[in-house]
Nucleic acid binder design. Structure first.
Lengths: 252, 252
DNA sequence: CACACTTAGTGTATATTGTACACAATTTTA
DNA sequence: TAAAATTGTGTACAATATACACTAAGTGTG
């Protein structure tokens, strides 16, 4: 076994890419690093895996320690192991990702992480280590995932409107969808429970609220669900007319 | 940096799951281990990653050193890191997979690997380490892949018949497909070049030979190819009649 | 309190794709 | 020359995807 000693000098970490959805925008959870290396820079919540700890366990622990988030389902995505990706030595990192409802969790950044904050995925700056690459890989995974199954309920509050759901899909897929076809597709899957409630406090016709039917979802998965949403080719509607009365004829 | 020293005591390896297709059967390349641990057992071709070596590079090197296979495209699948998966200490392993044409490569097992041999995926025995889990994960990846794009040309010789292609898909998907629908689907994708040649030395009507059109494939991928093959629900044909003359009427 | 504003909600006709299914054609072999 | 083996082909029907526009139901305001 002596001959192998030279190999036992490396370390590994886990990094978590946590997606959320808020204000019509896809977000990712970042922490402002409170220690070296990259002290003061934004990065993904990650840390070393303990010697006696499984990878999945480590990912959960690290996430909780850095942000206070608990009971989050994490899925392994990819491992990054470029030789010089970490200044302290040879460190490979296993990337995990998850989808959560932002409003349901309260961030409690630890002392190591000085700050944890949701950032718009579209506007993420230059991150510590190779975290931009990692984020990218996870974002691609999310896009891929959302095409193959009606994921994304994880990102919405328990009660949501069909329009919110559609906006979520549009944000992830970076495309526009046709309202009627989207609704038809979602509703025929029988995945939503109509709560027979409506929105309140909006200055327009309030939308119905729905809830995700998790049992039905498990059932569909077991059946080998396939799910595809195609981009709407509809041309942009012409600009809104200014605030004046319109005669019925104009509406044809 | 001192505080981190305890983390720099682990090692990592790469393990390769190489699939091939031969005699109508999906195969995986295994080596008979020539050193401890698990000396004498069959396992995946894998080894430690050198301290100054990237993961992808290591996967390629290891594969070549153990089997003589070169220029094989390898794709990362998943990382396995259970605490006690390796008797020598904390070792996590990154699994890679690939598809190759068996007939195109000659195996040249190294002295470390006493033997490299293709095994039927369906009949793989108890392997070293957690290699059964790794193989499983990669097999699932292959199934998933084959559903989303017309992969698998990688597994066939450069010239092949449509029936061979169909058998390959049936082997991977563990299902039966309808001949006419399969051909229609494949041919309308315009992925095959009809070589205007036929099989030789078969005791029946010889089949046309086709070649895979790689350019067209790249193009389809860029367009965001989607591809789905559904199981044939056709009932098994009744048992063949014995070798006797049949009148035309009987064939209705 | 009427009307302007905003967003929700709905249906249909057409095109595309998937599916089930059976027999004639071409080669070898005895 | 007949049988065996396997290739190769088409069509009708069903299911799914797509394009598309107006009415409904609230709120705000002048």
């Amino acid at each position: 076994m002596n001959e192998f000693n030279e190999y036992f000098k490396s370390a590994f970490t886990v990094d978590n890419v946590i997606f959320g959805f808020d204000e019509g925008d896809l977000k990712v959870l970042l922490i402002k690093r409170g220690e070296e290396p990259y002290h003061g820079k934004w990065g993904l919540p990650g840390y070393f895996v303990y010697p006696n700890e499984d990878l999945d366990t480590a990912a959960k622990r690290v996430l909780e320690q850095l942000t206070g988030l608990r009971n989050v389902f994490l899925e392994q995505v990819k491992t990054f192991g470029t030789v010089n990706r970490h200044p302290f030595g040879r460190v490979i990192t296993v990337a995990y990702f998850s989808l959560i409802k932002i409003s349901h969790y309260t961030l409690q950044p630890s002392s190591i992480a000085r700050k944890a904050k949701w950032h718009s995925v579209a506007e993420v700056e230059d991150l510590a280590f190779d975290h931009n690459d990692i984020l990218n890989a996870c974002f691609n995974r999310l896009k891929w995932l959302v095409r193959s199954r009606p994921v994304g309920f994880e990102l919405l509050p328990p009660k949501f409107t069909l329009t919110e759901l559609q906006h979520l899909y549009e944000a992830i897929l970076e495309t526009k969808l046709d309202k009627r076809n989207f609704r038809k597709k979602i509703l025929t899957m029988d995945l939503l429970v109509d709560l027979e409630e409506t929105q309140e406090g909006v200055a327009h016709r309030p939308a119905r609220l729905y809830q995700f039917d998790r049992n039905r979802y498990e059932q569909l998965l077991a059946e080998g669900l396939s799910f595809e949403l195609k981009e709407s080719k509809r041309k942009e509607p012409a600009e809104r007319k200014p605030r004046t009365k319109r005669t019925p004829q104009e509406m044809a």
